[in-house]
Write a protein that binds this DNA or RNA. Sequence first.
DNA 1: ACGGTAAGTTCCATTTTAGAACGCAGAGAG
DNA 2: CTCTCTGCGTTCTAAAATGGAACTTACCGT
Lengths: 165, 165
Amino acid sequence: MKWHELGEKNCPVARSLSILGDRWTLLIIRNAFLRTCRFEDFQKQLGITRHLLSDRLNRLVEKKVFKKVLYQEAPKRYEYKLTEAGLALYPVMLVLTNWGNTWMNEDGSHPPLEYVHKPCGHKTSPELRCSECGEEIHPRDMMPLMDGLQNNTGRPLAIPDSQDG
Amino acid sequence: MKWHELGEKNCPVARSLSILGDRWTLLIIRNAFLRTCRFEDFQKQLGITRHLLSDRLNRLVEKKVFKKVLYQEAPKRYEYKLTEAGLALYPVMLVLTNWGNTWMNEDGSHPPLEYVHKPCGHKTSPELRCSECGEEIHPRDMMPLMDGLQNNTGRPLAIPDSQDG
DNA sequence: ACGGTAAGTTCCATTTTAGAACGCAGAGAG
DNA sequence: CTCTCTGCGTTCTAAAATGGAACTTACCGT
């Protein structure tokens, strides 16, 4: 399968990954959340080659994750700002942070990155909850609705009843 | 920067992406959540080359996202099952599903993948909420605690106060 | 004129990936 | 006992992506 075909799949995970699923894109977006918005800064902070950075930024602009904002005429210079779609990736960052803190740090050699939820003032870890009843979501409680074939297994995106068996 | 160096970074996002950040890994994990657990099935469903699939599965086993479970002696055959760390990636799948449904489907050509939360019986979209106060998390409400330099910008993983300005 | 800044582009060596064919260890059929 | 099939890789070659460094363009300040 060629990579660009993934964006046409009838699976939202595949379509997300058709943009986000490479070695640099999510790191670039991470740094955008860190307020980085200029080419030189992305390049220095990430150590990505200029070639690739140029390519990735263009793709993200094309896909409406970033927008270019002019900050200087003559010569024209643009900042790369997250669009609404880009900002909507914050949950992805939080969830990856959580997972990395918990599972990629088993020897405890890295201090976990913790967050304070400013409105309540407590250290928090984000939890996924049902928008309807507010209960925390457990994988086996989720039942997908299939409007069509949603993936290439013929099975819904859900966890096995007995993954460990 | 070489790719393998990413796993040693003091940033949980970078460490997560050192495993998940390539073109196939999250798709393989998606299919694992779809109950796929054998080499042939992954290969047929994803259209990934056998070479790469072998490589990725081995890496995921090594990183303790999958475990090999013997299901047949002579010749020895293994199923690839998600470990606890692997199952903990379900939020990543849900969040990517949400984002793809919302932002990678602007022409409405793909029916969204919807979920029913079985305990309450309603269609749901997962929301990130504070583990302490239960309020929904908005990017600008999050204030990271820096135990050390958590990234290579010297800035915390938080959203700009004025991203649009 | 000269050095500095910002954002790419170009070039080439190395690495990764795609695609198909091949290997192997049994299992079951004839 | 050969013949084919299944399951799981490994090997091979060509194509694509990536890393690393140098080069280009356009302006600015001195």
